[in-house]
Simulated assay, not measured.
Amino acid sequence: MKNILYILLMLLFVYSCGLTKNSGRGDRNTSAENDTVRIANDSLEYEIIIIEPGFNLFINSIARPQGYYSQTYLENKNRILVNDYNNRVRQPMRYNNNLYVQEINYDPQIDYGYEVNYLLYYYFVYLSRQYNQRFTVPTRI
């Protein structure tokens, strides 16, 4: 009887360790799959897709919370940053064409909403920090 109790306790211990181990793996897979941020609005016919490893972690841990900056502030910053970014896309011999792949079609006359401006601004902050890039307007947090 004593041996059965020890065996049951050992099995329970092994089973509980297995549960902890599996949940940790699931969290890592989820974060790896969530490195793509997509925001779309069919009525305005725009879409923003950010495919950058570590961007979600950056947004969730380092970026200031939504609402910290006003939408006007973000729009003004994005207008300048997008122009600088697009200029770099047009000069592949001068700037790394692996970082600056495609132009960003950002029209300052369109109201994209707060979330798009927030994510776009923090994409530039992420680029400047992750790849040590300096843009025309300092990107601060």
Rank of each mutant, 00 (worst) to 15 (best):
Q66L: 02
L11F: 10
I39A: 05
Y131S: 12
N34G: 08
S16L: 12
N83E: 12
I59G: 06
A32P: 00
M1V: 12
I110H: 03
N76H: 08
V89C: 12
R90C: 03
K21R: 10
Y106V: 05
L81K: 03
Y95M: 07
Q109D: 04
Y118N: 07
I48Y: 01
I49H: 04
N105K: 15
I141M: 14
N34M: 07
Q109L: 13
L127K: 12
N96I: 08
I49D: 07
S70N: 13
N132S: 14
K21P: 00
Y123K: 12
A63M: 05
N76W: 00
E47C: 05
Y6Q: 13
T72V: 13
R64M: 09
L12C: 12
L99K: 06
F58T: 02
K21I: 07
Q130D: 03
L99M: 10
Q71H: 08
E33S: 12
F124Y: 11
N29Q: 13
N97S: 15
R88Q: 05
D111Y: 12
T36K: 13
Y15H: 11
D84Q: 06
N34E: 08
E45I: 05
Q91R: 12
M93G: 15
E115V: 13
L19N: 05
F13T: 15
F135T: 01
R134C: 00
I48W: 02
E52C: 09
Y95V: 06
S23I: 14
L19P: 00
V125Q: 02
R38W: 00
T136G: 01
G24F: 07
P53M: 04
Y95A: 07
N34D: 06
